[in-house]
Write a protein that binds this DNA or RNA. Structure first.
Lengths: 227, 227, 227, 227
DNA sequence: TATGAATGAGATTTCATTCAT
DNA sequence: CATGAATGAAATCTCATTCAT
């Protein structure tokens, strides 16, 4: 029994290795510059081998995207207090976003890929490939749910359409990250970026909060672990 | 003297023609799909000739970007009332943005290119090519000036850093447009997009306005000419 | 002794399984589309294992070819009346050909492979690999013998060179089948194909028959089992 | 005026060169082994350049096919006596075929490509690409017309269906050539091959001729120029 | 004996850019 | 000034075959 298991484990590890190297490359040079040869070189495998693990380049990207989304959504969910008000939940969401960024910068990868393969996210856009669509809607339902809660409990603007706004929020968050990702790696200063993110997210909090919201809820904490 | 002048004039016209055709192509198929062959075909010139007018593809794009920015900034300036308050000016800025979009959709081109060639806009980014940097800072000073005015006259949040926020605002505005630009041309519904833009800009107005701002200034008009 | 025998038997069965699956695939998609991965998948073995049973892809194909030829030749021999005249024997040969086609369509496989790997069949061709050569000469001697008989008993054209003509006949028969095999499977209409074969074979019968041959021997029966 | 013309001429010559080199390669190694790199090397051009002259590999093959068919059909037509009987015309057709083979061996190329890209020629096959279809039907109408003439003037078997038989004849002719083409170049002995072709075509002549046809019309001449 | 894994070599196609005329 | 022509370098993907276990 040992052998089969070991093989399976090794196979998983290789998959993981490839995905990780691809992620690294995206982080380093951006998703546009990613190509199969580089992934192969970096993984110390041949190009052909990559195709044993992933049907094609898109499948590989989609998998990275799916993983990143899933872990982000899960991360946020563990930090969400189910009894919190809508504005509090939103605050937590942004704080998590900044937190994750501070820890792993995986968010770069997520966003980069999303930009590359999401045809669009306006209402009516249909062509989104299923896997990608899945990632996307996972995030959207999370956000949409938070917004609905806030509208219901009166902590968010009453005029908000949670469905539409959730899309917008993703678009904006992606944009910010994407913008950062285009910087050469050495120009990325985590502290500065965090400050930037904080500024934008606070702006958005003010933009969606109900008029009488407690002002302290419109401030985000600074993530401490930033190197 | 006549001959030299005519030559110069003709040269300018050719440049303009090339730029226009490139713009058309971007509008039609997106900036990712733009290639030199198509521009040449469309301009009824040879590829080699393009290189007589532009050093390389990037230079061409940069020029389009510069032009678009300049005309956008000018358009906005003509509509700005010098005596208006900061929040009013910001309102006018967004309204202009939506208005320009409604009229020419040139904004697609501007944004598409910016995303493609702007390394980034965070503080510390150095690699920004000068021409692009010029475009960029033209827009930034416009917005920054408006924000400063608002902070000074008390219509905008006092905590705002005009310099930093101007950058953020551009990033977000670009993101929204970029998102739209990825839709196939036939899927772009001007009315829907305008509604989307309006929603986001109003959110941003609320986000930056001082607490006691007249609420009617936080609403944007619908552009009427939308077909 | 039991163990060794069982092993040998199992080994034979595996070989047979692989060959059968390969045949099925050729029948389904044509010999051009055949690849080792598909054979392995279909046989529920690994690609590497195929190489334990066959030196390489060619060897595998050659074996299929040999089997098919052998069974075709045997099938024909059982139907040949040793006392029949040459023209009658030739008639039987064609009828068998059509009959085999009607029953199993294995003839597709035989022909497809032959076309792919037979360097050629003209006199002087030396490079023919032995196994293939064996298949080929098995068929040739069968036909050659029939032709010789016909020349001897005066039912076939006296000018015929049995040796050379046997080759020609095989070539033509292969061509017809090969042509059919290139049709997508669903476009293959057994009845139409049989009619086609019949037309050609009757033409060939007329072409080789002596002038005074009984005309009824120049007609082929329709195979009844055709669905 | 001279320059444009010269350029056009040179362009045509390059096209012709590429086609010729491709033909040579097919002649040398068969159509299966043909690849763009080899054509490029042989033409002393880069692969990319080939794509300036031909949209893709298929287009290149199709052009060779079209040329070869056209010149074959024209060659035959110049040799056909309009007042000749059907059997005489058929005799001329075969003689031409052998003659062309003896002169240029271009017939190898024609056949090789046809086999590669003609899905099939049985009734009901539709998927044939248009250009290829054009080549194919050019040959078919030539042959069909000859057969009709023969049925009408009583020199060919009355039971013949010109339409169907024309297809069959092409299939067989292609098969013979294809078979030869698979020989390594150095094993191809023009004299032997001609004798082979002659034997087969005479067989077919006998197969389609009316019973009372003048026997001398069933013999083909030997092509003299054979080296 | 069996196999999962790996790979070298090669196929087609694209595109920004250069150069001789 | 204009251009037709050419190309290097790269990208994605395929497949028969080998090897360590």
């Amino acid at each position: 029994m040992g052998i089969t298991e070991r093989k399976t484990r090794e196979r998983k590890q290789r998959r993981a290795l490839i995905l990780q190297k691809a992620r690294d490359l995206i982080l380093e040079n951006g998703v546009d510059a990613l190509n199969m040869q580089d992934i192969a070189d970096e993984s110390e495998l041949s190009k052909a081998t990559l195709y044993l693990y992933f049907e094609n380049k898109d499948a590989l990207l989609l998998e990275i995207l799916g993983d990143a989304t899933k872990s982000f959504v899960e991360y946020v969910k563990t930090r969400l207090d189910p009894s919190a008000s809508g504005i509090e939940a939103l605050n937590t969401l942004w704080a998590s976003y900044i937190g994750i960024f501070g820890e792993s910068q995986d968010i770069f990868v997520l966003t980069g890929i999303m930009r590359q393969i999401t045809p669009a996210s306006l209402p009516g856009a249909q062509g989104v490939k299923s896997a990608n669509g899945a990632s996307f809607s996972r995030m959207r339902s999370l956000i949409s749910e938070i917004l609905s809660r806030g509208v219901a409990d009166g902590t968010l603007e009453s005029g908000i359409d949670p469905d539409r706004l959730s899309r917008t929020i993703i678009t904006i968050a992606m944009a910010i990250i994407d913008d950062v990702a285009r910087l050469p790696r050495e120009a990325r200063d985590a502290r500065l970026i965090e400050a930037e993110l904080k500024g934008i997210f606070e702006l958005m909090l003010r933009g969606v909060a109900a008029r009488d919201t407690d002002r302290t809820l419109l401030k985000l904490p600074i993530h401490e672990g930033a190197e």
